[in-house]
Design a protein around this nucleic acid. Structure first.
Lengths: 259, 259
DNA sequence: CAGTGGTCTAGACCACAGT
DNA sequence: CTGTGGTCTAGACCACTGT
C-alpha cells in the first residue's frame, strides 16, 4: 500500500497530496470498506513527513466521511459510497449535467423590479430596492421538470442584465464575472398541487402534485445573495439527501494531553 | 473580548474549550455577523497556548460554518444562523422534542420476520434472514403526522423484542443497550397520494398528498443498520434542509510551506 | 507490553492583505 | 513594512486497544 508518491517541490500541501492518494485508492477499489489505512507513524516514516502532517491528512479524510478513526486501533475505510449524487448547493445546470441530462431553460421573465416584501426580507435588503428577477421553465432534454423564480439584489451584480444570457447558467456567470459563489443554502420543501398556469407550463394535469422549494443561498460570509421559489413535477423529480448526525466538531472529545 | 478563561487542569482539550467560548459569545450576541475574531497570535499570547492550538480552535469553528477565515485578513463570524432545526440523522422523538412537540407513537406491528427482497438488499443481508420490523403511526400531541415502517437486522440487537417498549425511542434504546448509533443516512424523498388505509390511519382524505421517505441509516463504519419507509402528511410536515457546497476538504488549498 | 490515534508545544517559512 | 492565516517540523504525553 505504501509508499504513496508525494512531491515535495509541488505547491500542493503535503497533507492534501496524501489525502488525494488515499481517495484515489478508495475510488479504484484498492482500498475497500473496512480496510485499515496505514498508521500515522507509518505514513510519517515512509514519506518522511512529520506525524502531525500525516494526522492532518487522515483527519481530513474522516471529515469527508470516507474513513473513521478509533483511538488505539487505527483508521479504517468506511462503507459509505462516495459517488452518489447528493443534493448540494448546486445550480440546475450542474445538477442535470451530473445526472447526465442536457439542461435547458425557457425564459419566462428577466427583469429588474423593486423588491416586494418577502423578497426583501429574505435577502436582507430594504423594500423597493431593485432586485434582478429571472423566471424560467427548467427542462431535461425536452421534458419540463419545474418552474424556477430567482431573485438577486441588483446592486450585487451591476450590469448582469446586459452580460447574462438567461438560457445559460446563472451560477457560472455569477462566479466568472462577479466572483460570487454560493456556499450555503437554507431550503424548505413542501408539497403543492399544480394551478392551471403551472400545469400548462409543465405540461401536466391541473392538480397534480409538485415539490415546492423555497431557497435562500448565501456566500461565505453569510450574506444572502439569492432567493428562489420553485415548483417541480413530483412525478419526474425526487430528492436524494445524505444526512449526518450533528457535526463531529460539536462533540466534546475525551482527553487532554500534557505539554 | 479576550481573554477567555481556559482551564488547563480540565480533561477537556484546550482547542475545544476555546471553540466553545467563541460559540458562546456568538450565541449571546457578544460576537455578531461580520465581527472579526481574535487572531491566532493573540489567542496564543493571551491564553498561553501554542499557535497550532489556537489554529485548531479557529479551524474547527470554520468547519462548523459559523466563521470563515481569509488568509492575510483574519477570521470572521459568518451570518449563518446556528439555531435553526435542520434535518439530521435523528429519531422522530429527537426531532419532535427539538421542535417543542410531544412525540407519541401508536404501534401497528412489532415482530421479527424473514427479510423480504428489498429489505435484505437495503440492509446488505441474505434474504430470509430475520429482521425486526416496527410499524408505527407517529403523532405530535394528538395529531397524526405519518406512518413509519422500520426494519433492523435482528442479529444486530438480540433480545430487543423483549427489552424495547415500542412506544418509546428506538434510537435511544439502540444506543443505550447496544451501543449502536446512526451516523449517516441516505434518503430519497418522493410524493405520493394517500391510499385508503393510509388516509384512515392519518385521519385525512384518500388521495391527499404525502411525503414518501425511503431511508437507510448507517453506523460509523458504513454498515447499514436500519431501513425505513415512511409516509408523512404533506399538509402537516415540511422539510428544512441546510445545503452546503462540496465539502471544503475536497478543494485544493493554495500554498505549501518550507520546513 | 507495544502500537494506535488525540492533543500539545515552540519554533519555522510561506502567501497574502493592508499600510 | 507588519500582521494575518496556512502549512510544516520534531519532538512530547496521554488514553485507549490488543497481546
Amino acid at each position: 500500500m505504501l509508499p504513496f508518491a508525494i512531491d515535495r517541490q509541488s505547491v500542493i500541501p503535503l497533507y492534501y497530496q496524501i489525502q488525494q492518494r488515499v481517495l484515489e485508492k478508495i475510488r479504484t477499489g484498492e482500498l475497500k470498506a473496512g480496510d485499515s489505512l496505514p498508521s500515522e507513524q507509518e505514513i510519517s516514516r515512509h514519506l518522511g513527513v512529520s506525524r502531525m502532517t500525516a494526522h492532518q491528512a487522515l483527519k481530513s479524510l474522516c471529515t469527508l466521511g470516507v474513513t473513521y478513526s478509533v483511538q488505539g486501533k487505527g483508521t479504517f475505510v468506511s462503507g459509505m459510497k462516495l459517488e452518489k449524487n447528493f443534493r448540494q448547493v448546486r445550480s440546475f445546470t450542474e445538477e442535470m449535467e451530473a445526472l447526465g441530462f442536457r439542461p435547458r431553460s425557457k425564459v419566462l421573465a428577466f427583469e429588474t423590479i423593486p423588491a416586494p416584501e418577502d423578497v426583501a426580507g429574505a435577502l436582507g435588503i430594504p423594500r423597493e430596492e431593485p432586485v434582478l428577477t429571472l423566471r424560467r421553465v427548467r427542462l431535461a432534454g425536452a421534458a419540463p421538470l419545474g418552474i424556477e423564480c430567482s431573485h438577486l439584489p441588483a446592486l450585487l451584480c451591476p450590469g448582469l442584465m446586459k452580460v447574462f444570457d438567461p438560457r445559460t447558467s446563472l451560477y457560472r456567470t455569477l462566479w466568472e464575472r462577479y466572483g460570487i459563489q454560493m456556499r450555503f443554502a437554507d431550503e424548505i420543501v413542501e408539497v403543492g398541487l399544480a394551478a392551471s398556469e403551472e400545469a400548462r407550463l409543465l405540461r401536466t394535469a391541473k392538480g397534480s402534485p409538485l415539490f415546492l422549494f423555497t431557497r435562500i443561498s448565501y456566500v461565505q460570509d453569510g450574506q444572502p445573495v439569492e432567493y428562489v421559489k420553485s415548483a417541480y413535477r413530483a412525478d419526474r423529480y425526487k430528492i436524494v439527501n445524505r444526512l449526518t448526525r450533528l457535526n463531529r466538531e460539536f462533540w466534546a472529545p475525551l482527553t487532554r494531553q500534557a505539554g
